[in-house]
C-alpha cells in the first residue's frame, strides 16, 4: 500500500489520544450500567445493586471529568484540535454529501467521499458529531453530574422547582444522547476500508492518509 504515491501512513492518533479514547470507552460502559441501575432502580433490569451503582457511578464520573480536562488541554496544545475546526465553505453541501454516502452510496460499494487527510481526519458528519459530543454533550453531562454529586451547590430553585430537578433531567437527557452516540459510534467503526480497519487504527494509532485533496 505504501508504494502507492498518493497515500502515506501517518500516526494520527498518538498514544495520549488512544489512552483517553479507550479509558473513556470503559468509563462510558460503567457510567451507563450504573446510571441505568440508579435511575431505573425498580425496573427489575438493573445489573448493579443501588449502593454499589452509586459508588461506581461517582468514581467513574470523577475519572471522566479528569480525563476530559486532560483531553481538552492536550487537544489544544498538541494541535489535534485542527480536526475539530469546521471548514465553513460549502459546509452544508458536504454534510449532505456524506449523508448521501451513508444512506445510498455505501450500499453500492462506492468509495468514501472524504478520505482521511493530514489536515482533516474526520468526515464532515463525523466532525459535527464529535464537536457536539466533546464540546457540548460531555461538558453538560459533567457539570450536571458534579452538581448531583454535591447537591448543596445546586441553585435553590429554577423555574419554581427545586434546582436539582432541572439538573437531573438535563443529566438524564445528556446521558441518553451520549448513549445514542455510543451505539452509532461503535457501529460506524465498522464502515472503514475494511470491517476492522478503524478498530486497528484506534489501537495502533496509524492511519493511511490521502496526500492530495480529492476535491
Amino acid at each position: 500500500m505504501n508504494t502507492e504515491s498518493k497515500t502515506q501512513w501517518m500516526l494520527l492518533y498518538p498514544l495520549w489520544l488512544r489512552a483517553w479514547h479507550w479509558t473513556n470507552a470503559l468509563l462510558f460502559i460503567i457510567l451507563l450500567t450504573c446510571g441505568f441501575s440508579l435511575h431505573f432502580a425498580d425496573s427489575g433490569w438493573t445489573l448493579v445493586p443501588f449502593a454499589t451503582a452509586r459508588t461506581w457511578h461517582n468514581l467513574a464520573g470523577l475519572a471522566l471529568t479528569v480525563g476530559y480536562l486532560v483531553f481538552v488541554l492536550r487537544n489544544w496544545t498538541s494541535g489535534n484540535i485542527r480536526h475539530y475546526k469546521p471548514d465553513w465553505r460549502g459546509w452544508s453541501s458536504r454534510l449532505l454529501r456524506q449523508a448521501h454516502y451513508y444512506g445510498v452510496e455505501i450500499f453500492q460499494g462506492a468509495a468514501h467521499p472524504f478520505p482521511v487527510r493530514r489536515e482533516q481526519k474526520f468526515n464532515p458528519l463525523q466532525q459535527l458529531t464529535y464537536v457536539c459530543v466533546v464540546y457540548l454533550g460531555l461538558p453538560t453531562l459533567i457539570v450536571t453530574g458534579l452538581l448531583l454529586l454535591r447537591p448543596e451547590l445546586a441553585p435553590e430553585a429554577i423555574l419554581g422547582m427545586a434546582g436539582l430537578w432541572l439538573i437531573a433531567v438535563v443529566h438524564y437527557l445528556a446521558g441518553v444522547g451520549l448513549t445514542v452516540f455510543l451505539i452509532m459510534h461503535i457501529y460506524l467503526a465498522t464502515v472503514g476500508k475494511t470491517l476492522t480497519s478503524d478498530l486497528k487504527k484506534m489501537i495502533t494509532g496509524w492511519e493511511e492518509v490521502t496526500l492530495a485533496d480529492p476535491r
Binding site: 431505573f40 432502580a41 427545586a162 430537578w165 437531573a168 446521558g175 441518553v176
Partner: peptide
C-alpha cells in the same frame, strides 16, 4: 425535592428508552 429513582417523568423515561 428531587429523589433519585423516585421522582420520575414517565414521558422522559419512555423517550430515553425509545431513542436507544
Amino acid at each position: 425535592s428531587y429523589v433519585l429513582g423516585m421522582t420520575r417523568h414517565s414521558a422522559l423515561d419512555k423517550l430515553g428508552i425509545f431513542a436507544v
